[in-house]
């Protein structure tokens, strides 16, 4: 996690944002927006669209900060996940009308999840995804990276690797299962 701020400081800022503290929100933006824009730019190549997605993300962050404590994610994970979701929303909205479906994903993420203690346990397991992705068959690793960093869907991936959609699904699911096994070793 390459946050500009320490974990505690970020948590503190988010807690103040949850109380409606605009200056804390401003500081949170200054500290994290460059990283989040970097993430948006991986999904959306066009700068202006990525900046729009970044706006969406901070609107969601302001509105969802009061539910942050209950979602069990570390602060940068929460922020990056929101930014990535907003970027994928923009990406997919530009292709077809996905409407409310996508919104629900972000909302569900914010509304449910383990307690902070549970998440601390999950975090301390320190599953090393990068080395495990490298252990996978190269194309599977690449597909998972593409799905996460570029927001690629099954049909994008099927087209990219030139395989039928269902083959892509089976393939990627197997990849995810191997990945999990590797990370639990």
């Amino acid at each position: 996690m390459s946050g500009t701020l320490e974990l505690k400081a970020l948590e503190n800022l988010i807690a103040r944002v949850a109380l409606g503290d605009r200056s804390a929100f401003s500081s949170l933006y200054d500290a994290t927006a460059p990283k989040l824009l970097g993430v948006c730019l991986r999904v959306l190549k066009q700068r202006s669209v990525a900046e729009d997605a970044l706006q969406d993300a901070y609107v969601k962050i302001w509105k969802g900060a009061d539910r942050y404590v209950s979602n069990g994610l570390s602060p940068m994970t929460w922020l990056i996940t929101i930014a990535r979701n907003c970027a994928i929303d923009r990406l997919r909205a530009s292709r077809r009308d996905v409407g409310s479906e996508i919104d629900t994903v972000t909302e569900t993420l914010a509304a449910s999840g383990p307690s902070p203690e549970q998440s601390a346990i999950a975090g301390s397991e320190a599953r090393r995804i990068t080395s495990c992705l490298d252990e996978l068959e190269a194309t599977r690793g690449e597909a998972i990276r593409g799905a996460y960093l570029k927001g690629e869907s099954y049909s994008d991936l099927a087209a990219k690797f030139d395989v039928p959609l269902n083959t892509m699904r089976t393939w990627l699911r197997r990849g995810l299962i191997s990945l999990r096994e590797c990370m639990e070793r």
Binding site: M1, K35, G72, G113, T130
Partner: peptide, 29 residues
Amino acid sequence: FAREVAAWHEDLVTLTDPVAPVKPRRATK
């Protein structure tokens, strides 16, 4: 299941570690 989703988020987010920060335009804020 929610815990498993959160654990995946924590794992996957490390893929963004090499993503370089890009300063947003002033107007965006």
